[in-house]
Simulated scan of single mutants.
Amino acid sequence: MFTPHRKMLATGALLGSALLAVPVAAHATAAPPDAARTGLTAAPAADAGLDDPAKKEIAMKIVSSAENSSLDWKAQYKYIEDIGDGRGYTAGIIGFCSGTGDMLDLVEYYTQVKPGNVLAKYLPALREVDGSDSHAGLDPNFTRDWAKAAQDAEFKKAQDRERDRVYFNPSVKQGKSDGVGVLGQFIYYDAIVMHGDGTDPTSFRSIRARALSKAKPPSRGGNETTWLNAFLDARVWAMKQEEAHSDTSRVDTAQRVFLRKGNLNLDTPLDWKVYGDSFHIG
Rank of each mutant, 00 (worst) to 15 (best):
T143V: 14
R165N: 11
G131Y: 10
W146K: 04
L104A: 09
R161G: 10
G101Y: 03
N141K: 15
A209I: 05
M103P: 03
S213R: 15
I207M: 08
Q151E: 13
P170Q: 06
R208N: 09
K121H: 07
V172L: 07
R208E: 13
F204C: 08
P115D: 06
D133N: 15
Y188S: 10
S132Q: 08
G116H: 06
D105Y: 06
F142D: 08
D178S: 10
G137Y: 07
F96P: 00
G101T: 03
C97V: 11
S171I: 02
A158Q: 01
A211T: 01
A158S: 07
E162G: 01
A191P: 02
W146F: 07
D190V: 09
T143S: 15
F204L: 15
P115W: 04
T100C: 14
S177P: 09
D160K: 00
A149W: 06
L119G: 03
D145C: 04
V180K: 05
V193P: 04
R161M: 11
G196Y: 05
V182C: 10
L183N: 08
R208K: 12
P115H: 07
R161Q: 11
D133G: 15
R127N: 10
D139K: 13
I207E: 03
D105N: 11
G175N: 05
P140V: 10
F168S: 07
D190A: 11
V193M: 10
Y109W: 09
S203D: 03
R163S: 04
A149Y: 02
K156V: 00
N141Q: 15
V193A: 10
